[in-house]
Every structure is written in structure tokens, then in C-alpha cells.
Design a protein around this nucleic acid. Sequence first.
DNA 1: TAACTGTTCTATTTCGCCTAGTACACCCTT
DNA 2: AAGGGTGTACTAGGCGAAATAGAACAGTTA
Lengths: 127, 127
Amino acid sequence: MIKLDLQSKTPLYLQMEQQIIDLILMGVLKENEQLPSVRNLARDLGINPNTIQKAYQDMESRGIIYSVVGRGNFVASPSAAESLKRRESMAALEKLLQDARHAGFSAQELHQAVDAAFQPRKEDDLL
Amino acid sequence: MIKLDLQSKTPLYLQMEQQIIDLILMGVLKENEQLPSVRNLARDLGINPNTIQKAYQDMESRGIIYSVVGRGNFVASPSAAESLKRRESMAALEKLLQDARHAGFSAQELHQAVDAAFQPRKEDDLL
DNA sequence: TAACTGTTCTATTTCGCCTAGTACACCCTT
DNA sequence: AAGGGTGTACTAGGCGAAATAGAACAGTTA
């Protein structure tokens, strides 16, 4: 259900968060559904429970999941995850668009880049 | 001439590279112009010469500057810096556009974001 | 020669990430 | 009440990247 890349430069707990968010957005994980326990998931992934705990805590602070002591962690409203992801994505994009502008790109070039991103290629949706 | 943010998460040597590249693109630093020596710049910025050296070496490997032992470091062709920055900027943008697409943004929304980035605002060009 | 330059090297510190282990409080089922 | 699950908190340590500190060597220039 979750695959971690131990070689990646991005921390394990962030990889986890990203994949769980995606699972929520894809509808695999539904509202109020219980997430794997800290200990179980750590055992399955072969990593330390503290790392799972860190990811869960971070996601709870972002409103993606909520936790109940003694019971477990549960996914919050999927719309929360969606709006969060859209918000973060747009914020990053705006910053990068400014960079591109200052790098000398014209509006026309950037519009072309947008179109290219929506141009179906062979590899798309195979990930 | 160069300002470092010691609190930033991005390494000092990368902050330096970014700012020097910008200075080249703005025409402040011209082709074949000599850069500050490793020791002088380190003294002025209050950091270690090795950090400057790392930045210079990295920039040389990227073709932005060239170094001559015993003489100093000099800016290479400004077009090298420009094409590099454009290349890097576009690569980052393409990746983020895909993210945005998968986050549920429509092409129309992204086109609007591009236009917004080119919309003159008060703070612009004051940096 | 003297004073500058780049370059290389080792050692040390700092910090974030991650692991390891332990302990405690809570909830639920039996 | 008891036991096993849960989240939570804490200390300790390893590890690697970033940065510092200091020294040494090599080339250039006045």
C-alpha cells in the first residue's frame, strides 16, 4: 500500500505523507477510515515507529487526519486533503512562475508549458 | 553585494550561487570580470572560505564561472548563466505543472496562474 | 621575494533524519 | 479487573550533509 525509497533525499516521513494524501485523494482511503497503527505500519514497512508517528503528527497538524488516543488515527474529510494539496501546489507554482518570469520566459512560453503539461503522452497515468 | 540568510534551510553555498547568477543576469557582473577572492568574500560575509570555495567549484562545474589558479575566479559567458537558469527553471516548472495537474487543476486555472504571474503588482521589481 | 590567488586536506561542530528502547495513558474487549 | 491494542512522550545514539577551523601546497603577479 505504501512504498518507501530509502535512497531518496526526501525524508521517509514526508514520502509517507505524500502517498497517504494521494491514497485519500484517489478514494482508496475514505473519510473516518482507520489508518494502520503506528506499530503495525512500522513493522510492515521495516522502519521505526517513531518515523510513522512523526508523519501522523505532521498530517494531523495539517488537518489531513485526526487521532484519538487509545483508538487510532483516522482520515479527516477528503476535501481537507484536497484543498490542502491544491493550496500547496498553487503556492509552489506561483513562486516558480515568478522565477521563470525573472529567468526571462515570456507569458507565451509559459502558456505553452502549461499546454504541454496537459498534452497526453505515453507515460502518463502509468505511474 | 551578496546577502546570506543564516536561518534559511537552503545551504549558504547555494544561496551564494543563486545570487551571483542573478548578478550576472542583471549585468552587474560582466563577462571575464573577476569575482571576489575566496578569502576576501569569506571575510566580508563572515563565513568560512571553504564555503565560498564550494560555491565557486560548483559554479565552475556548471559553466557559470571559470577559475585560474593563482589568478582568481572569473565569470564565464553571461549567456551560459542565462541558458542554464532557463533550463533549470523550465525543468522545475514542468515537474510542478504535472503536480498541479494531478492535484486537480485545470489547464484554464493554470493559464490564469501564468497571467497572474505577469500581472504587475506593487512589490514587483523592488527586490 | 612578498603577497596575493586557487586548491586540497583533515578534524570538528552542528543539525535534521532516523533508529532503538522504554514508559505512560487511554480505549476496548473479554 | 485484566489484557492487548492504541497514541504519546522521552532519552539516547548513529548517520550524513553542511559548515567551520586550520594548515599546507601550488601558481601568479608586483
